[in-house]
Design a protein around this nucleic acid. Sequence first.
DNA 1: TTTCCTGCAAATAATTTGCAGAACT
DNA 2: AGTTCTGCAAATTATTTGCAGGAAA
Lengths: 166, 166
Amino acid sequence: MAATPAPRSVDDVLELLRSRGGRVTSSRRVLLAALFEGGPHRTAEELAAEVQAQLADVHLSTVYRNLDELERLGVLVHSHLGHGPATYHLASETHGHLVCEQCGATLEVPEELFAALVRAARTAYGFVVDARHFAVVGRCAACAALPAGAPASAAGTSEPEPSGGP
Amino acid sequence: MAATPAPRSVDDVLELLRSRGGRVTSSRRVLLAALFEGGPHRTAEELAAEVQAQLADVHLSTVYRNLDELERLGVLVHSHLGHGPATYHLASETHGHLVCEQCGATLEVPEELFAALVRAARTAYGFVVDARHFAVVGRCAACAALPAGAPASAAGTSEPEPSGGP
DNA sequence: TTTCCTGCAAATAATTTGCAGAACT
DNA sequence: AGTTCTGCAAATTATTTGCAGGAAA
């Protein structure tokens, strides 16, 4: 059974927070509003900027601490997409990410795209894939169509052929 | 056609390096030896330590630069497994990673496990998945067998340590 | 000789932490 | 009142970079 039913509104989370002995502060309220209203997978810095638009004094470290706590409460998850900073999103918005390593575009895809992988991992290794926390790297349609020595990546990466090697 | 067939020995790489106008230096030779002889997915720092065991003066930044260059040549790839530092391995040893978010164990799996995902992503989104360069997060067989509420609800479980280092 | 490579130190980028005081309950 | 939070600055971690000297071709 889930110890913490996924909260679906700012007030839900604040209540959960209070019930765990936490305090409801303005920075948390605004951060949660940003999380619930804004787009998916934003970085700590982006979220801090949104919070600071309304509460200029909120420090980045406070945002980190709040994100950390919200993750501990099960409200958020964060993913490391390729290189850059981690991105945060609500635990209720579970989806996978396809991240283009050439242009950096992030594509949200439904969990069902990973169904076969999830099944295969469990069958072959007993490994239970966490679909919420998921980032798959590769090249998006646009970049894949470009020749190998494409623009975004300075590296003239020659294509390693994935064809049938044992 | 591939301009650079995957090199399979230290000398192969050194030759490739030279053919591209690069210099064969002792630090590169030792680094390559470490890469070819040692285990998979080691961090830059670990590799530097191995190099320094034989060439004490080789600086970490040199290792980074060499790894960078080797990656540019297509000899290596690096992956970001969850949190910590990136791990490097030979391009010829391509495999995916299943990382347990509970105990930190890293499981190497053949690329073919991702075959269905690769196909689905390409079909549905034109996205070309690079199975070598990402980590799939979840729970390994051992941790998945534990009762649902055990470590996940414990306050200290957020950052499991990857095996071993000092 | 000419260009590339290396060590060093310092710079970044992302995130964490100690502390004293302010805010919540 | 009694904790928990917060701002700030400084510490950490992972990686990059400018520079001048050293080494390979």
